[in-house]
Amino acid sequence: MPAERFLHSLRTAALLLACCAAGAAHAAGEAVPVSDDPVLEARVLALSHNLRCLVCQNESVAESRAPLAVDMRNQVREQLAAGKSEKEVVDFLIARFGDFVVFTPPFKASTVLLWLGPAILLVAALGAFALRLRRRQQEVPVPLGEAERVRARALLEAAPPPEEPYK
């Protein structure tokens, strides 16, 4: 049956073509993003930047390539994917690793000074600034005494100042 054979070969060709196309697409096509869900990945990344990688001490979980950091990233991803909020995930990690694990210390009794310190400093400094300014505005310039006048004139006339030059 020539017709059938023809159809069959056509189908084979089409299949082959499709395969080639797929192969080509695979070889020269779009690279696959590491994550299937870029929105979730962005959330994971944002949260990981605020987490301290405990074994590397001063890197965030987002930057570190240490195995524990990978675990923590996976844990964060899993929980966010399961619908937990950022805060719930952070609380979960704090319950296991302590406050040390987050780069933003929680606001509580022991960190009051940390969070309010800069504001207190600013208020104190501005207070001192205002005080200084008021005093300066009220200050009346003291007129020069006769001795000072003479010295000033001498200085003006006889430059360089009367000091021992360094030899």
């Binding site: 405990l54 001490q57 704090i94 319950a95 296991r96 690793f97 302590g98 406050d99």
Partner: peptide, 9 residues
């Protein structure tokens, strides 16, 4: 020792 982290557990 700054490397020692107490456990909240």
């Amino acid at each position: 020792n700054p490397r020692e982290v107490p456990s909240p557990l």
